[in-house]
Computed example of a mutant assay.
Amino acid sequence: MQVILAQPRGFCAGVTRAIDIVERALARHGAPVHVFHEIVHNQWVVDDLRSRGAVFVQALDAVPDHAVVVFSAHGVSRQVMNQAQARGLRTIDATCPLVSKVHQQAQRFVRQGRTLLMIGHAGHEEVVGTMGQVDAPVHLVSSIDDVQALALPVDAALAYVTQTTLSLDDTRAIIGALLARFPDIVGPEVDGICYATQNRQVAVRALAAQVDLVLVVGARNSSNSNRLREVAARAGVPAYLVQDEHEIDPAWLRTAPRVGVTSGASTPELLVQRVVAALGVLHPDPLTPVVQLPGVREDVSFRLPAELALP
């Protein structure tokens, strides 16, 4: 049996920064440090930080007055920011800088007098946060059907932004439908997409071309991990999302001499290596040496908030 690893995979710079922020906040302020929503969408990461004193909350009402609270990598609405300020909470913003860039784009389009559309998944924390960053109505678009259902004049001055965990491939058809229906619509530059989302989807597509089965290691509530599984499946191979090694079904391996493994942008490499080790145990034949495909080498890094930067 051959195991082939995608490159790149796993943590992106925004996730690394968000986890670093919680760890440094714990070191500087001591436990507990409250975190608004999961810092990133991975239960292993959340449980590890919880064991060290992080307290994850779904509402600011659960945070004591004047306590330290970290906003997750997905970003929050202005309402949440204002509520934290009114409560006297000591806030640390772990919003991914690429998400913050989307917030700025949305605000700029609204200042220009354009009606804003958000391409993304309903209920996702990033979408909720972005839509709450502007003082104007925002129309959520998740599919081509949603485009056709928009009750807006065809000559309306519109603009769109996209959820960062969606790649160019994810949004191409929706953007095409918007452009076809609304001539006066503008959007962000192509180089404004999340590099990590696009790189991982390109990598898993290359991986799927060389294997009989793809395993994506990631949380079920991780948007980018779910998209990776969908990309592999569209490439014509069976593809499964597993949170860890315990979710591998041995039946998947019976007709898969070549197994590809990748992971979402919020998945620790430790979980990938556990999956690889489990494949060696579950398969009746010994593993040949694990191969890592060539791919983009990411060297992106983001600065920490000033209050947590090392002296």
Rank of each mutant, 00 (worst) to 15 (best):
S100D: 11
K101R: 15
V102L: 07
H103G: 08
Q104N: 14
Q104M: 15
A106H: 02
F109I: 00
V110K: 00
R111Q: 11
Q112S: 10
R114A: 00
R114Q: 04
T115N: 11
L116Y: 06
H121G: 06
A122G: 07
G123L: 08
G123K: 07
G123V: 08
E125Q: 13
E126Y: 11
V127Q: 11
V127C: 09
M131I: 09
G132L: 13
G132A: 04
Q133K: 13
V134W: 05
V134N: 05
V134T: 13
D135C: 04
A136W: 07
V138I: 09
H139E: 10
H139K: 08
H139Y: 13
L140E: 06
S143V: 10
I144F: 12
D145G: 12
Q148R: 15
A149W: 07
L150H: 14
A151V: 11
A151T: 14
L152F: 13
L152Q: 13
V154R: 15
A157L: 14
L158M: 06
A159S: 09
A159P: 08
A159I: 03
Y160K: 05
T162E: 01
T162I: 11
Q163T: 03
Q163S: 05
T164H: 01
T164Y: 02
T171S: 03
T171H: 00
R172E: 09
R172P: 00
A173V: 08
A173E: 15
A173S: 12
I174T: 12
I175G: 01
I175C: 00
A177D: 03
A177N: 12
A180M: 01
A180E: 08
R181K: 13
D184K: 13
I185H: 03
G187D: 01
E189L: 13
E189H: 14
V190M: 11
I193E: 05
A196W: 01
A196V: 01
A196R: 05
N199A: 10
N199Y: 09
R200Q: 00
R200V: 03
Q201P: 00
Q201N: 02
V202K: 07
A203L: 00
V204T: 05
R205H: 10
A208R: 04
A209Q: 14
Q210T: 05
D212C: 10
D212G: 06
D212T: 01
D212R: 02
L213R: 04
L213K: 05
V214F: 02
V214W: 06
V216D: 09
V217F: 13
A219F: 08
R220H: 14
N221L: 14
N221V: 11
N221S: 04
S222Q: 05
S222K: 07
S222D: 13
S225W: 09
N226G: 10
N226M: 02
R227K: 12
E230G: 01
